[in-house]
Amino acid sequence: MVKELAIRTCGLTKQFERYIAVNDVHLEIETGEVYGLIGPNGAGKTTLIRMLATAEEPTTGEIYINGDRMVRDKSNPTIKRRLGYLPDDYPLYEDLTVWDYLDYFARLYRLREPRRTQRLHEVLELIQLGNKRNSLISTLSRGMKQRLSLARTIIHEPILLLLDEPVSGLDPIARMQFREIIKALQEAGMTILISSHVLSDLAELCTSIGIMELGFLVESASLEQLYQRLARQQIILSTLGRIDAVISELKNHPLVEEWEFLPGSNNLRVNFSGDQNACAELLRSLIQADIPVTDFHCTQEDLESIFIKLGHKQAS
């Protein structure tokens, strides 16, 4: 069964004078996905998101949102009604209350009573700010302000959400609260594209990942495929014995590729090309060599390691 695409771009390019910010991007995002966009500063992520949000005109190429083509030099009202766009620097009106701020945007989107009041209550409950409805925005914490910005973005019930660095500058608790809201929105059937430098958040949230470098989309795949193809298996190993005895045993094992010391302990991280059975064989050989193993567990390279590895590959 062919899944419907929430986003499809063909040869999407944006040039500012001599600088090409987005270069010939062919992107496909299926309906219901949480798609993470990563890349260094200047890679073209924000420009790509702005074009998808109709805030920036492409130089060349086509954009389709849920099958409808975005028309250049037109306002594209049908597409805009389906979109929720949260830029990384959107200002809040600090002298308004939380309720008045959301009510203002609900009116801009022409929500009528009684649906407007009902929707305000729904979003305030989702972002956990119901008890702050009469508070001035200037009194809110940074995390609360960011959740309020998200509420404004979804007040009109869009089916596609575009989030540019939404957790930038938030503390771990605020990031966790934001993640929970994103998960709830996905469960409600929304398609979400999110860019972030916090790769651990994306690894927990996303179904697919796109990696941008110098304006090019150099990688686009499901998170599962990315891990299968690019993540090496790793073993975290601890011992009470001499570390040189462990290394001597590791050198004899053909599936051990390399190892590194983890600071401050008798711990090693071992890159290993074998499967689970081979891991068990390695553990057995260490025990047979009378090495006092206190910890031995298999893990996988994380998204950050994959990203850095791909970056080196592109640079070489």
Rank of each mutant, 00 (worst) to 15 (best):
A221N: 13
S222W: 12
S222L: 14
S222I: 11
S222C: 12
L223D: 11
L223G: 11
E224A: 12
E224P: 11
Q225S: 12
Q225L: 08
L226R: 14
Y227K: 08
Y227V: 10
Y227L: 08
Y227H: 11
Q228H: 15
Q228G: 15
Q228M: 15
R229F: 06
R229D: 07
R229H: 11
L230R: 15
L230G: 12
L230Y: 13
L230E: 13
L230W: 13
A231H: 01
A231N: 01
A231C: 03
R232I: 06
R232M: 11
Q234D: 00
Q234N: 00
Q234S: 02
Q234R: 07
Q234I: 09
I235T: 02
I235A: 03
I235C: 02
I235M: 02
I236Y: 05
I236Q: 03
I236G: 00
L237W: 04
L237A: 05
S238Q: 08
S238D: 03
T239N: 02
T239K: 07
L240C: 07
L240M: 08
L240K: 03
G241V: 03
G241M: 05
R242S: 04
R242M: 01
R242Q: 07
R242N: 05
I243Q: 04
I243V: 05
I243A: 03
D244Q: 04
D244Y: 07
D244K: 09
A245V: 00
V246I: 01
V246T: 01
V246K: 00
I247A: 02
I247S: 02
S248R: 04
S248E: 03
S248T: 08
S248A: 09
S248P: 00
S248D: 05
S248H: 06
E249W: 00
E249A: 03
E249F: 01
L250K: 00
L250A: 01
L250T: 00
K251P: 06
N252E: 09
N252C: 04
N252F: 03
H253D: 06
H253P: 02
H253E: 07
P254I: 15
P254E: 04
P254W: 04
L255M: 05
L255F: 07
V256D: 05
E257P: 00
E257K: 08
E258Q: 08
E258H: 09
E258F: 09
W259H: 13
E260N: 10
E260F: 07
E260D: 14
F261W: 08
F261Y: 06
F261Q: 02
F261M: 03
F261G: 01
F261P: 07
L262R: 10
L262Y: 09
L262N: 09
L262H: 10
L262P: 09
P263G: 11
G264E: 09
G264P: 09
G264L: 15
S265L: 10
S265P: 09
S265V: 05
N266R: 14
N266W: 07
N266M: 13
N266Y: 10
N267E: 12
L268R: 12
L268A: 15
L268H: 12
L268S: 12
R269V: 14
